[in-house]
Design a binder for these strands. Structure first.
Lengths: 242, 242
DNA sequence: GCCGATTTGTCCGTATGTATC
DNA sequence: CGATACATACGGACAAATCGG
């Protein structure tokens, strides 16, 4: 349940777009019409519309109106990398049956090499977790995570099999905020072949990232290794003045 | 040269972060201090800071301040996929010598298969362009573009060798606005092997996208095929309420 | 081509809420 | 508890692009 007005408006309009109230190419009602409908100022409407624009749903045009964009690919998407979303949330969102198997759950101390790779301080106590994601009966994703142990206290292999984010947010009250992500393609390792159903692929789409919580410290380094036919999306890209 | 106040402030603060005026973990001056410095309202400051947050430079925390985030990966980055940027712009930004060779430049009519793949209407006249990007002496990127011919009138192979975006924006007055992008890993095709220096790789990182201009119509379908060691970035990802 | 209405874009000033210290 | 700092929201003004008459 959205608490803020702009979130409510954002969700309402987004639902209307997704349910097909407007078709592609249509102009949305004007901002002034929305202010009347939602009983707020243009600023608040504009904030909600800006979020939808950022996600690639809308194309606002000066003097004309705001157009809904046709998006052939969105329907086929499974995981988006524009937002932070746990695997469980993504699977739920797409109504896909997904199961998780924890293959490693152990403590590690951050050495120099690992520190340079992950950004954790040398000597930090970390939790190392490897999980295999099975979707539609196939093992297609290998997730590798390093958590800062001091921040993820109480995390167990049982919880990791369900949803770590849900535990951290609901039980521990952590607030996941922001992350940086890097996308690469990599040759599959022996470990990838061992745990994933690679079919005839010998490479992977790898998404690496750092996650910060609202306490301000980086508490997770994550790597998600996807079989290439598991497509990932950036919801939108916006051109800045150059 | 930024025309708007918020762009100027955004650039100024961004430059300060990049030049190391603040180090990682530091708190930025408060919004009120910035309003005094730039002579504007908090709204305008907040807009500039929001852009930097979106790009992953900042972590604002309620009641505390705005922290600069440490980013080990950014320094090694070449191309970002959070924004729309021409290859030439990215190369310039990173001060890397890049050259472009046009290997195909021809007209095609959109058939049913192509229409489903690209989203162009069946029967549309398209311009098909293939270009190889050489960076540091190596052919590492194969760019494949379909332009809507009616919108890219006057485009020539000579222009394609320099910068298509520059031509479209400056000469034709088109305004590139928004796009949707998809990231996959793909097996290299014979064409990839033929034109790229693949070393011992046999797969590519592929970024596919649709580009709209301010006229509201999709006028470009683009595919950028990168040798895997050419890393790409998403500048940031933000967690929404779930 | 001009004018006025509409619509989005930018910016201002202010008030209040809420988390942190 | 008060001071500070970010978060949300209000209301208004003017600019700039578009469109119909």
């Amino acid at each position: 349940m959205p608490k803020n007005k702009y979130e409510l408006i954002y969700q309402t309009i987004k639902d209307e777009i997704l349910s097909g109230v407007y078709s592609a190419g249509d102009l949305l009602p004007s901002e002034n019409e929305y202010t009347a409908r939602f009983g707020c100022t243009r600023n608040t409407i504009r904030r909600a519309l800006a979020m939808l624009t950022q996600e690639g749903f809308l194309l606002p045009r000066h003097g004309r109106g705001v157009q809904v964009i046709w998006q052939p690919q969105r329907s086929r998407s499974i995981f988006s990398i524009g937002g932070i979303e746990s695997m469980k949330e993504a699977a739920d969102r797409n109504r896909m049956p997904m199961s998780t198997r924890v293959i490693t759950f152990e403590e590690r101390i951050c050495d120099k090499t690992l520190s340079e790779k992950t950004g954790f301080d040398e000597g930090s106590a970390l939790l190392y977790v490897e999980r295999v994601r099975k979707i539609n009966g196939e093992n297609v994703i290998l997730d590798i995570n390093y958590f800062l142990k001091s921040e993820a206290e109480g995390l167990t292999a049982e919880i990791a099999a369900k949803s770590i984010y849900q535990y951290l947010e609901n039980e521990r009250g952590l607030n996941i905020t922001t992350s940086l992500r890097r996308v690469t393609a990599e040759k599959a390792s022996r470990r990838d072949f061992r745990y994933l159903d690679m079919e005839d692929y010998d490479f992977l789409l790898v998404i690496t990232g750092q996650v910060f919580h609202s306490g301000g410290i980086m508490f997770e380094y994550t790597q998600s290794r996807h079989r290439p036919d598991m497509v990932c999306f950036i919801e939108s890209a916006v051109r800045r003045s150059v």
